[in-house]
Write a protein that binds this DNA or RNA. Structure first.
Length: 99
DNA sequence: ATCCTGACGACGC
DNA sequence: CGCGTCGCCAGGA
């Protein structure tokens, strides 16, 4: 799998996250089966604009520093509760299986 | 090959 | 809950 295919795979995975749910960088990496959380982050930085990048969040439930404000707004737009700058993953974490 | 860097994550304190 | 440390995986210099 070359880099371009990898990027595609990641973007497809991100697009499959339903509004109202979120996935962590690690979740996407695991789903794609290649690379790690940092690679997913790199793809978001570069091509996130093409998909629902704001539905990808850190495992801590706190958005990446670079985009924290906008990500919170967009998530709220999806109906996701954000308390004290943090998302409760236990209730909105995306589960690829239950698709 | 080597070093540095990073939209990350698990762990220990 | 906040922090520092270390592991991880690639890309670019």
């Amino acid at each position: 799998m070359d880099r371009e295919e990898y990027v595609e795979a990641v973007l497809v995975a991100v697009e499959s996250i339903p509004p109202g749910r979120v996935a962590t960088y690690g979740d996407i990496a695991e789903y794609v089966g290649q690379g790690g959380p940092r690679q997913v982050g790199a793809v978001m930085r570069e091509y996130g604009g093409a998909v629902g990048w704001w539905r990808v969040i850190r495992a801590s439930g706190i958005p990446a520093d670079e985009v924290v404000d906008q990500q919170i707004q967009l998530l709220r737009g999806d109906g996701v509760r954000v308390t004290n700058g943090k998302v409760n993953l236990r209730e909105v974490r995306w589960n690829p299986e239950e698709q």
